[in-house]
Design a binder for these strands. Structure first.
Length: 103
DNA sequence: ATGCTGACGCTGG
DNA sequence: CCCAGCGCCAGCA
């Protein structure tokens, strides 16, 4: 077992792990995830990582924007919203598209 | 090694 | 509420 260097090498891994621990029906913002992963200012990178993640073990649809908007999804934002709604996440109809998570 | 990319966040208009 | 601009960072070609 090699000592795990959390500085950068594990960042992606850590992010995926954090996301995979989000309970059913719960949501976290990108900022929260990145904070838990230890890089409070790397929210940009998280988007990159999640966009490339296709592992079903990682419920990346539970990660939303800090302003409450849904954000993007590699399978389509609409699909992401449906998934969240089916998990009981309440959306407040705002604007035309995105909608805001009620919390 | 270098430069561009993007599922973001925040402020200002 | 919507749009534009700037900052920030790890991944990837």
């Amino acid at each position: 077992m090699k000592p795990q260097r959390l500085s950068k090498y594990n960042f992606k891994n850590k992010v995926l792990r954090v996301v995979s621990r989000i309970p059913w029906g719960e949501t976290l913002t990108y900022a929260q995830v990145v904070y838990l992963a230890g890089r409070p200012k790397a929210y940009r990178a998280v988007g990159n990582i999640l966009s490339r993640n296709f592992d079903p073990k990682v419920p990346c649809h539970r990660v939303i924007r800090s302003d409450g908007k849904i954000g993007g999804y590699n399978r389509g934002a609409g699909f992401k919203k449906r998934l969240l709604q089916s998990e009981g996440v309440i959306f407040r109809p705002v604007g035309s598209e995105n909608g805001v998570v009620n919390r």
